[in-house]
């Protein structure tokens, strides 16, 4: 498929293939390099609409880099991402993003509701005052993750799991069609994991598309229907049933997973 589509920009008279124009997120030939060592190499990814896809792979496989490149946070050396068939820069309003918790300073002077309101920044623009309805929407998003009662807390006073939920609330406030999440379950308590997965399943029920970097192989088949295995290169992509196989895991993780472990994971899936 990649050979058929060296460029994402349609030349005059050229058709963009359906897979790209219909997918909430289509990445083609994306390479990101820090220095002269590609962190990800020539990645193709096509997210299925209305489904949850887990990006999995070992540490340093380029999972977060792939997400950041898809979002334009890091500049790819080659390749591009299309969102619902159009370039990313035209589709910002349809994308919500939840970064890793460790990526910000939690001592920053801001409160829980202020962070949720940041999800409305496109709507508020530079000067529009924050009105009661904006606050109500931010509170509703906080409520969905069970954080409404903490609205006026300084964010540094929250536990790790609560911080993660506030980040999810901010993404919810963006009211998007495509949700890109970077390790939403990393280092959270069981209650938070439950709360987050419930919200993600609601999103899927609403027909939204979720793509999440995920590190916990034991929950992949329970939480997600699609997987994307990466180790700098694309290893496999597709439904859990066909892509989350012992062979592919072995290929992605190399010697890092014991054979018994892999067997257990693959057998354990529903």
């Amino acid at each position: 498929m990649k050979d058929a589509m060296p460029e994402l920009v349609a030349e005059a008279g050229q058709q963009i293939p359906d897979a790209v124009s219909h997918s909430p997120l289509a990445i083609r030939g994306m390479t990101v390099s820090y220095g002269e060592e590609p962190a990800i190499f020539s990645i193709d990814l096509t997210a299925e609409p209305g489904a949850m896809t887990a990006i999995i792979g070992p540490n340093g496989a380029g999972k977060s880099t792939l997400l950041k490149a898809a979002l334009g946070i890091v500049r790819p050396l080659s390749g591009a991402a299309m969102v619902f068939g159009k370039p990313l820069s035209k589709q910002r309003a349809h994308i919500a993003y939840m970064p890793q918790r460790a990526s910000v300073d939690w001592d920053f002077p801001t409160t829980v509701i202020d962070v949720a309101l940041m999800g409305l920044s496109r709507e508020l623009g530079l000067l529009r005052p924050v009105r009661a309805r904006h606050k109500a929407r931010a509170l509703a998003c906080l409520d969905r993750v069970g954080m409404a009662e903490f609205a006026d807390r300084q964010i540094g006073q929250l536990s790790g799991g609560q911080q993660q939920r506030v980040f999810l609330a901010r993404a919810l406030a963006q009211d998007a069609e495509l949700y890109l999440l970077d390790e939403p379950f990393a280092g959270v308590d069981a209650a938070t994991e439950r709360a987050i997965i419930d919200v993600l399943k609601q999103l899927r029920a609403e027909g939204k598309t979720v793509v999440a970097v995920h590190h916990d192989l034991s929950t992949v088949s329970e939480y997600f229907e699609n997987v994307f295995l990466i180790n700098r290169r694309r290893i496999a992509e597709g439904p859990v049933g066909t892509a989350f196989t012992a062979e592919n895991l072995q290929e992605a993780y190399g010697g890092r997973l014991a054979a018994g472990q892999i067997e257990q994971l693959v057998l354990g899936r529903a």
Binding site: L71, Y97, M118, L124, L126
Partner: peptide
Amino acid sequence: LVLRRPMIQVAFDPGFAETTGI
């Protein structure tokens, strides 16, 4: 004052700010 929102967003979470088009 006009630029306060993007400046605060970038200071808090530049990655997220970038994805919202700032």
